[in-house]
């Protein structure tokens, strides 16, 4: 049918348009020189330039450290809060939702700037760039952690399970953390993977808050951009593959639970 053909065409054209820059960047990372329509040749030399570099791995490691710290922190905070809301004060959920969705509306730049003005130059722990980074990212991923955990709790009917566990003789704390949490683990992991992807690819927060004092992957990328085009695309390719792996894990998990 004509309708179906147009639809298919529309879909694949869009898909193609979206994939094109990705493919180009990938090809560029292998090209020796590309100032005409086609590259002059293919080479691995830029991979050889970037991959063995220690500062490249250090930047990836720093990013990973921030990711892990933030996600573990945010996860624990959110679970504790959801424990209280689910078991004791279901009416608070409304307020928690509003608070957690504010970062989603404000976006990175405002949050980063507001934290920077307040804490830069502060004494002690609050003034540490790493603490500021973790704090900022925590706030930024809060909406995703909240949604993921809340939906998972709904899906397992957390309140009813806790009642049943109570009748059988355990405390609500035990019920929440030993029965409910194992059952929403996949939801937690999906949110964590999503958050990791966001933190990994972020540039605005780290540029505003840490500048070049704490070089994460994005900062490394920006630095490389000034040096060489092909080298830049190598870094992009590596970063993209990492993000892809993360979201594939999340995707597979989501399909498994359904």
């Amino acid at each position: 049918m004509k309708k179906v053909n147009f639809s298919k065409w529309m879909m694949w054209v869009t898909a193609l348009y979206l994939i094109l820059p990705l493919v180009l960047t990938f090809l560029y990372s292998f090209s020796s020189e590309w100032i005409n329509v086609l590259p002059t040749g293919f080479t691995f030399k830029y991979y050889m330039q970037i991959l063995p570099r220690q500062d490249f791995y250090m930047s990836l490691a720093r990013t990973l450290l921030i990711c892990v710290l933030t996600i573990v922190l945010a996860g624990i905070l959110m679970l504790l809060a959801m424990y209280v809301v689910t078991v004791y004060h279901p009416k608070f959920d409304k307020y928690l939702q509003i608070l957690c969705m504010i970062p989603y509306a404000l976006q990175g730049i405002i949050i980063a700037i507001s934290i920077l003005t307040l804490y830069s130059g502060a004494k002690g722990l609050f003034g540490s760039r790493i603490i500021m980074l973790v704090g900022t990212y925590c706030i930024i991923i809060l909406p995703y952690m909240y949604q993921g955990i809340r939906n998972a709790l709904r899906a397992v009917s957390a309140r009813e399970l806790i009642e049943a566990a109570q009748i059988l003789g355990c405390t609500r704390f035990y019920a929440f953390f030993r029965i409910i949490v194992p059952n929403i683990l996949s939801g937690i992991i999906i949110s964590s993977m999503l958050s990791m992807g966001i933190i990994f690819g972020d540039f605005v927060v780290v540029n505003v808050i840490a500048g070049s004092s704490y070089q994460t992957a994005s900062m490394f990328l920006y630095k490389t951009m000034a040096q060489s085009g092909q080298a830049t695309s190598v870094v992009i390719v590596v970063m993209f593959i990492i993000t892809l792996i993360l979201s594939t894990i999340a995707f597979k998990l989501r399909n498994k639970t359904h």
Binding site: S157, E160, A164, A165, I167, G169, I179
Partner: peptide, 19 residues
């Protein structure tokens, strides 16, 4: 408190622990 009442209860939605 509920956990001290020595009561057994069966719910409409069973509420069996899924894991």
């Amino acid at each position: 408190p509920t956990s001290d009442r020595e009561i057994g209860m069966v719910f409409q939605q069973y509420s069996l622990f899924p894991n």
